[in-house]
């Protein structure tokens, strides 16, 4: 879809040049699959981030570092990343758009947009750290990046780091949509770490497309902490999630519908995790 209100196309020589253009109102473009579908209200320039060295996946003791312009297909085809966290990243990516879209759409585009993403709940559940540039290189927890509304300020997302899992631990993702091509009506990602005594040492219960930005259901995480992940705990966490998510009506679903779905998705994620844990 050609976009009429694009008056310029900038190929930046470095991240600083790209950021200056963004500060002046230009739109940063990575895969471009989302930007190209939205006609800007007034003429604006594009800044092509794919010419910068922001692509690639590396693994170290700190986990996986993924550059912003890495495509979702490249993530899915990275054997170690695809196997990470019980394969939850790969399970999720197979439900994002079509192969054609995943060959073009990038992790950085997802992170910068914030909403309408199955990727972000999973990354939040894994306690990912985001890297960005706003005149200086920055890094911080992904959850804080959204909670503080930093993603709405002029910046360029440069990458994401996914830390190693501290076993025994397990993760799961569930999405509810009309077809898997479609954007989620609601999605859920959970991760549970288990202590030596068999109780939950850390819990993440993240619900997205409420339709607010994906976020932890803190009360459910607190409830799960320090006790076994048994059916009673799972049921309580699901009930809390249904009540606590900031559900609203939009053209996909009503708030009431979303609360009903949230209970089911949280329960299914946690039950899957319980089945996987030793």
């Amino acid at each position: 879809m050609s976009v009429v209100n694009v008056s310029g196309f900038i190929r930046p020589i470095d991240i600083a040049t790209a950021f200056v253009a963004v500060q002046q109102g230009s739109i940063p473009v990575s895969g471009g699959t989302d930007v190209i579908l939205h006609e800007p209200p007034a003429p604006v320039s594009l800044v092509d981030l794919t010419v910068l060295p922001l692509s690639g996946i590396s693994e170290s003791g700190d986990g996986f570092s993924i550059g912003a312009t890495t495509t979702l297909s490249e993530m899915l085809e990275h054997p170690r990343l695809a196997a990470h966290a019980d394969g939850v990243i790969a399970d999720m990516l197979r439900l994002v758009g079509s192969p054609l879209l995943r060959n073009r759409a990038t992790i950085g585009g997802h992170l910068a947009r914030g909403r309408l993403s199955d990727v972000i709940p999973v990354l939040l559940s894994l306690d990912a750290t985001i890297n960005w540039y706003d005149g200086s290189p920055r890094a911080g927890p992904l959850a804080d990046f959204y909670a503080s509304q930093t993603h709405r300020t002029p910046l360029i997302v440069t990458g994401i780091t996914i830390p190693p899992m501290h076993r025994p631990a397990a993760a799961a993702f569930r999405k509810f949509s009309r077809t898997h091509f479609d954007l989620a009506i609601l999605n859920c990602a959970c991760r549970i770490d288990i202590a030596d005594d068999g109780s939950v040492a850390a819990a993440r219960v993240v619900v997205g497309e409420t339709p607010a930005l994906a976020a932890s259901v803190t009360d459910a995480e607190v409830l799960l902490h320090g006790r076994p992940l048994d059916p009673a705990a799972i049921s309580s966490a699901a009930t809390i999630a249904a009540a606590e998510i900031p559900a609203r009506d939009d053209d996909r679903a009503t708030a009431e519908y979303r609360r009903a779905i949230a209970a089911v998705l949280v329960r299914r994620c946690l039950a899957e995790i319980a089945g996987r844990l030793p």
């Binding site: 879809m1 976009v3 579908l37 092509d48």
Partner: peptide
């Protein structure tokens, strides 16, 4: 469809199939 839903415009860019309607030509 001109919005990345149907795949009829699929082409290879450096060997990977993409929806040509969703790619800025400048890239």
């Amino acid at each position: 469809c001109d919005r990345g839903d149907c795949g009829s415009c699929a082409v290879l860019v450096d060997g990977r199939a993409v929806n040509a309607c969703l790619v800025f030509a400048g890239q």
